Amino acid sequence: MTKFNRRQTLGLIGAATAAGLSAPALASNRKIKVGALRFTSHSGSFIAFERGYFADAGLDVEFQFFQAAQPMAVAIASGDVDYAVTAISGGLISLADKGAIKVIGGALSEEKGIDGQKFLISDAAYQAGTKSLKDLDGKKYAVTQAGSSFHYMGAKMAEKEGISLSFTPLQKVGAIIGAMKSGQVDGWSIVPHIAKPLAKAGAWHIVGDVSDYLPDYQVTTVFTSADNAANEKALTKDFLSGFSRGVDDYAAAMIDGTASQDEMIDLIHKYVYTDRPREKAAPSIINGTMRLNKGAALNLASVQDQLSWFQSEGLVDKDITIDQLVDTSYVETIGG
């Protein structure tokens, strides 16, 4: 098994950008690090920790928080973090191609009937006559980087609309928000808790749902190092067991209405929008609610579509296979 230090892993990322759960091991008390972003969509891990589901699975969890997905992938590949959730990107696929990481389950998904990510048009473009996604033909569309999930979503929308977009990489979500507000870019897609408040304030206009163009899109995945996937099977199953119980509680409270939403908001607020008082954080937490896959089930057909698109764009090696990216032995898979 090839080992990667942090510098080597960062090199791989840069090159890519340029181009059934077991019963838990109750007494093991194994220390692991879990990577997370302070987003509602990472709540499965937060709930599993707060309600003792990781502890029940024999795990002593420490969170390591990140500002973006790419450094989290680096940390997994270099062994600094054990498990995490992130979107599929060109960088992530390259790390799998090099034998550094494996996708082992699914997390956030687009699902019809549940509020999801939005396509947006900047107010400046809208006032100038760009009223629909089709009107974005030839205009600037914001992405963090070439080979990001934003790039994939925009390209798939453009393909269905029969338009051409000028993809503009701005590196960070904050920079994209600023560019949308100032009219430097014309379109973008983002999660509802960011899209809806700023649309209400007039910063941009919501003109479509990502689910209309990418039904059942597997937005984020659970992943780990290839070494953990191959050689720490009991540990990996224990992590997925605890995580899945957290996801079940999240769905019951935030989607299905069979458990207390207020109690769940209190729990999530310990990790998300912590700089805001609870009454101001609650609407954004609610707006960020999307489907997290039960049992960490993985939509393999969606993952294959993403892999094929990255290959068609020359962003990853054309010879990498779905088996190099995904270990299907841990969870239920859909399609593929």
Rank of each mutant, 00 (worst) to 15 (best):
P277R: 01
I268Q: 08
T333K: 09
R245N: 03
D256W: 02
K160G: 09
K280H: 10
Q304P: 00
A142W: 03
G116K: 08
T130V: 15
V210T: 12
S182D: 13
P71R: 09
Y217P: 06
E159W: 00
V210R: 01
G288K: 01
G99E: 01
A297M: 08
E62A: 13
I268W: 02
K172G: 00
K98F: 00
I286W: 02
F63H: 00
Y141G: 06
K172N: 13
V191P: 05
K270F: 01
Y330D: 07
E110A: 09
G35V: 04
W309I: 11
Q70L: 11
A73Y: 02
E62K: 12
V185D: 03
V316W: 00
E50S: 01
S244T: 10
D212Q: 12
G11L: 03
A48H: 07
G162R: 07
I114C: 06
S284L: 15
S308R: 13
G257C: 08
S244E: 10
T289L: 09
Q127N: 13
A124K: 13
Y213E: 05
Q184A: 14
L95E: 00
M180K: 07
V210A: 07
D60Q: 09
K318S: 15
E159V: 07
L37C: 03
Q306T: 12
K156E: 15
P277S: 10
L37I: 05
S189Q: 14
L307A: 02
N231P: 07
P24H: 06
L120Y: 02
D275G: 11
S308E: 15
S166Q: 15
V326T: 07
Y273K: 12
K33Y: 09
L198Y: 14
